[in-house]
Design a protein around this nucleic acid. Structure first.
Lengths: 189, 189
DNA sequence: AGCGCTTTTTGCCAAATGGCAAGTGCTGGC
DNA sequence: GCCAGCACTTGCCATTTGGCAAAAAGCGCT
């Protein structure tokens, strides 16, 4: 829990009472590897915060292939912020890549905090912004470079992630086939 | 000017007086093709809103190649929101691809509106979020697909943009060489 | 219209990547 | 310990894309 409160405090100050209130709304959730946290076609009704483990965001493209669009690891939010805000159904799944420990808030509680805690909306906005910027920063470098460079850059920026993700998912995220990634790894040593 | 006010009104309501105040802060700016609106290494001190024309966001990668990371067209913001907010220098240029007409606000005025207009901060939040989501939506599909698909998808989503952008910039954005894009175009007809 | 410049197209070949299938290695259940 | 299942590697070949350079087309200027 402290991890989450520390996460929030980077965006604004909250007093003891407020922190307690926030903490009282959180429910721990344990996800087994492969379990889904969010499913496509549904409207998100909760927000997860990853305490431990890795999840991935994925979808099926028009050829029916499963594409991994992004990863979520410790101290990051697992949710569909757009769906949460506008009540839209999601086109993406969020699935546990490893066993995961999360803190979960219902949409109702999450929103309700906005009516109780001064500055909560502002914090949420910063959370959203940071979340989007991180996504963008992870995806942007994947364009305009060859596969080896993409892989190396990922390794450099997310070293703690690379070895926890099955090769197939990582390859999909990088936009290459598993065979290609395997060959790239071989050539690097 | 009305275009910009309409843009703002989609995010929240503003009365006549507030709209007048906002309008009074805007300065028109005409940019010739190729002119820079923002330069890398500097801290942004202004926010532009594109009334007419197309700009591109670009940078130089570690091999000295110029990469186009994104495009900005009518009714979108031209600025470095992160630099604006945190006073960071930008690594990216913003350059006019065609002649452009912009509305420009100084950072000072832009921020000052927050002290005068109730709800301005909230509107800015929404603007920022929308801006980031649009960037993400434009870049995400560029991964995990072959060059032809990437081009077709861009054509479909931004038909009004494709024919106003020099081939070389578009190719760079799509992560392929100009020759390849030229060949792709040929094969499509 | 004619010239010089830039942009786009094309050809040629090399390199990178994909598709498929077989092989290898690891892991967990019995 | 053995087997089944899965993940990863590798080989082979087809396809895509890149690099380079020349040709063609477009564009502004005189």
């Amino acid at each position: 829990m402290d991890d989450f409160l520390a996460y929030l405090l980077q965006f604004g100050s909250l007093n003891h009472q407020q922190l307690d209130l926030i903490a009282s709304k959180a429910t721990p959730l344990f996800l087994l590897k492969e379990a889904y946290f969010l499913e496509a076609g549904q409207v998100t009704r909760r927000v997860g915060f990853v305490l431990e483990g890795v999840l991935r965001i994925c979808y099926y493209n028009n050829q029916g292939q499963e594409i991994t669009r992004n990863f979520i690891d410790e101290l990051h939010l697992a949710t569909d912020l757009r769906g949460l805000e506008y009540g839209l159904t999601s086109a993406e799944y969020v699935q546990a890549v490893t066993d995961c420990r999360l803190l979960v808030f219902t949409k109702r509680d999450w929103d309700e905090l906005g009516n109780t805690i001064v500055g909560w909306r502002d914090i949420l906005h910063q959370v959203t912004t940071k979340h989007l910027r991180e996504k963008l920063a992870r995806i942007s470098p994947l364009v305009s470079q060859d596969a080896t460079t993409r892989y190396l850059e990922f390794l450099e920026n997310y070293p703690q992630l690379a070895n926890r993700i099955p090769l197939a998912h990582l390859a999909s995220f990088l936009g290459i086939t598993p065979s290609s990634l395997s060959r790239i790894r071989k050539n690097i040593r």
